[in-house]
Amino acid sequence: MADTTVYLAHQFQDADQQKEAATLGMWVFLATEVLFFGGLFTGYTVYRFQFPEAFALASHRLSVVLGTINTAVLLTSSLTMALAIHNAQSGRRRSPVAFLTVTMLLGVAFLSIKGYEYHQKFVEHLVPGSSFVFDPRYAREAQMFFLLYFLMTGLHALHMIVGVGVVLVLTIRTTKGRYTPAYYTPLEIGGLYWHFVDIVWIFLYPLLYLVGHHA
């Protein structure tokens, strides 16, 4: 029996119980994250039903190619995150660090592409406010679309920034050999967060970028 005193908090009977408590706790937190994003998704749904034409026109001003690339980037980062945990479970020392680093880099790549898109929106006067320029027939409704676009992707980007920070800490600790096949709970929990942020984007992508067809 390995020495568990290093990582086992005194209130738990064994490592399994501790891991189950941590997993359940993380899912409770993720449920509150669904609440957090849920209000915005609901607001989006209501306004899309009210202004279908304006939402389609406004959505066409987004770059569907960049949105698709970013989705692919995030899905790939979820794979590398899962593989990092898999390798830690199998007791490998170096490959989890490599996979975590790639995950972080993909997160930064996502944020960079997102930043470029934001920049484009500023240049094209598509940021809600006094300098917003759009087909006057739909200007007010289109502003609502872009307000939701910036709020939803902005909140998501904030989560991505936090996620990159979390993975950075996990990478450093993995380098120091803190995680073993018997104890890798922080990796598992950090992974849950990363995948959740991926899921939010999985819904943002069709809702914001794919409104009506582009042909």
Partner: peptide, 21 residues
Amino acid sequence: VVRVYVGAGFFWLLILIAYTL
């Protein structure tokens, strides 16, 4: 228990959207 929490976490969103609409 974890499965129940996962299901409930996402299911409530359907309730929110359905009732709002």
